[in-house]
Amino acid sequence: MTERIAIADEVRAAVASGRPVVALESTIFTHGLTRPRNLEVAFDAERLLRDAGVTPATIGVVAGVPTVGLSHDQIEIIEAADAGTVKTGIRDLPVAAVKRLHGGTTVASTALLAHRAGIGVFATGGLGGVHRGASSTFDESADLVALSSIPVLVVSAGVKSILDVPATLERLETLGVIVLGYRTTRFPGFYVRDSGCVVDAVDSPQEAAAVARARDGLALRSAVLIANPVAVDKQVDPALHDRVLADAEREASDAGVRGKGLTPFLLDHMHRGTGGATLDTNVAVYLGNVEVAAEIATALVSTP
């Protein structure tokens, strides 16, 4: 803990007393979802945790100050359309501090700040990963490197299927990140339950917590990634998903879209091509991961 990070009293007290806490990112409501659904989802996630007896710790940057445990007022401040809120990864935190910017924290920066505040479990939607064509562009998310050196347990729905999922899993293996499916040996592809890749599985919150304890007992510094697939009735129809993604990639190639512009281009095409189904799946993915994270956080603070 450090004076350069603001930690809400509620969160500080829960960590100090050994009660379960789950960290939540802020980019999902500052950059990921449209208004007004973004705020509804942010508050729904916190409500799910409280109903499960878990303290929520939504993380973001308020006027340059990394804050663990945003109040509802602070969430509304950094979400506002005129707030100038920037997407804030780890490398962006010092710049945001100097410029006193509002920031929505990414998976990487949320994991870092959660760990600094003593929080061991973090729920998100999906991770960033290796982009298709990365062998020539070297385009991959900073999330991967961050999780190689931050010992948190992250619950996600894998990585978005617009990325190179097999290459992402190879990088996670190289970086020493423990990857486990939650009650499945099929690594999820965010919008769909099965990306086509195989992983080892854990079958309960207790087993997931035991893996995290074993990692800590060995003094390993990498994250544990629990890949939780979206519910069957909430996934995008796999055939529709594959068809729309192929169309999106073809249009991006024809238009010469690459680099930072590629991901938003593909995601927008997926949203339009599925009639908005990807948005509904995004919300279902996130809230489902929050529920699983609550169970694991509770198991983690229980007597082994």
Rank of each mutant, 00 (worst) to 15 (best):
T174V: 15
V198F: 06
D242E: 12
A246R: 15
D247S: 15
V257A: 07
G259N: 03
E207V: 05
E251V: 10
A219T: 14
P36S: 13
G217H: 06
P188R: 08
V41I: 08
F29V: 11
I296C: 08
R213A: 09
S136E: 14
G129T: 02
C197W: 01
D254I: 09
Q74P: 03
D268H: 07
E25A: 01
E173S: 13
I7E: 00
R132A: 05
L287F: 00
R193S: 08
D164E: 10
V155Y: 04
I226N: 02
L266Y: 11
T137C: 07
G69K: 04
R213W: 07
L153M: 13
A8V: 03
A108W: 04
I5A: 04
S253V: 05
T174R: 15
L225G: 12
G103C: 01
V257I: 12
G196Y: 09
T278Q: 09
V244T: 13
A142Y: 14
E249D: 11
H115V: 01
R132D: 06
I5Y: 07
G189P: 00
T110K: 05
D242Q: 10
D73G: 06
T27M: 02
L240C: 05
T174Y: 10
A13Q: 15
S302C: 03
D9S: 09
L144E: 13
V68Y: 00
A146Q: 08
G120E: 14
S17K: 12
L112Q: 13
E207L: 05
G288R: 07
E207F: 04
D268S: 06
Q235H: 00
R215N: 10
E207D: 08
H271G: 06
K234D: 10
T174N: 12
A142K: 03
L279D: 15
P66A: 07
V292Q: 00
T34M: 11
A167I: 05
R50F: 01
G129A: 11
A96V: 06
V244D: 08
